[in-house]
């Protein structure tokens, strides 16, 4: 099927292509253009150059704060999620009764939507904090750790499944051979299992970084940025800038373009690291 008559090519690609152009391609280009303009609706845009980008930093501290908050959050949750997920995967690949049920339970939160997760945890966290006479809006660090716990609860099961797949792909003979050579469980873990699941580590890091950066629903439901937008992450800050005030749509769009560039940069770095590692091995 190296060659296909044009009409068939059109038949196979047109529906997707059309939807893609409407839902993504035009909005994407229009979004870049609008970030250099001042607008309320699309039709009344007037060119302002880089003004919106400057305003994003100078008008208030919200964008910088959200950026710092997001980076901190991403680092903490990536580390914790992967450590827990690997630990669980390691336990669940040993001969323990009921591993399947455990797997089912640990994975379950992953299917629940972010808005709903946010409210579940709001109830739980406020229920604990009320004993100390405060609530989650008292300090941004409560919101921060609340989000970290929530994100762990949601993502650990997912990552665990990927690690399990990674561990199970290690041949039994290799481990048996090590055992015969007198290696104990710790040595097997350190010298065989961990190096062999490195590809899974790459995947999981990638997924957790991407998800941490783009987090929105959970943030909106759990704290909505309280107190005073101090617990707002990038996606939420962009949303509030955009829809919270008439006249700052352009600034919101400029923030969104920068957000896109940050995410793209992280993905590129990640891909380069993965590629160089693949070359080494």
């Amino acid at each position: 099927m190296q060659k296909m008559p044009k009409k068939y090519y059109v038949f196979f690609t047109l529906p997707t292509l059309l939807a893609f152009v409407i839902a993504f391609f035009i909005p994407f280009l229009a979004g870049i253009y609008l970030s250099f303009t001042e607008f309320r609706t699309v039709t009344d845009a007037s060119w302002v150059g880089f003004n919106n980008y400057i305003l994003a930093f100078t008008d208030d501290q919200n964008f910088i704060n959200a950026l710092i908050f997001t980076i901190k959050f991403a680092i903490v949750s990536v580390v914790l999620i992967n450590v827990f997920a690997f630990f669980l995967a390691y336990l669940l690949t040993r001969s323990i009764p009921g591993t399947n049920i455990f797997r089912t339970i640990f994975f379950m939160p992953n299917l629940i939507g972010g808005i709903i997760l946010g409210y579940i945890w709001q109830l739980l966290i406020n229920g604990i904090l009320i004993n100390f006479g405060v609530d989650i809006t008292f300090d941004a660090s409560y919101g921060f750790w609340g989000l970290v716990v929530l994100m762990n609860w949601q993502m650990v099961g997912y990552m665990m499944i990927i690690y399990i797949a990674g561990i199970q792909s290690i041949s039994n003979e290799l481990i048996e051979a090590a055992k015969i050579d007198g290696a104990n469980a710790w040595q097997i873990l350190k010298s065989i299992i961990v190096p062999m699941v490195m590809p899974a580590v790459t995947i999981c890091t990638f997924l957790t970084v991407a998800n941490s950066f783009k987090l929105f629903d959970q943030n909106l439901a759990l704290t909505a940025g309280a107190p005073d937008r101090a617990s707002a992450m990038l996606a939420l800050d962009i949303f509030t800038t955009f829809y919270g005030r008439i006249g700052s749509e352009g600034v919101g769009q400029a923030k969104a373009v920068m957000f896109f560039m940050i995410v793209a940069a992280i993905v590129l770095i990640q891909l380069r690291l993965t590629r160089s590692r693949e070359v080494e091995s």
Binding site: P227, R229, G244
Partner: peptide
């Protein structure tokens, strides 16, 4: 002025109430 002013004022009142 606008909703943003009110929101910021409200957030400040919350911090004041919390003693922050």
């Amino acid at each position: 002025p606008n909703q943003t002013f009110k929101d910021n004022f409200g957030a400040a009142l919350l911090k004041y109430a919390q003693g922050n």
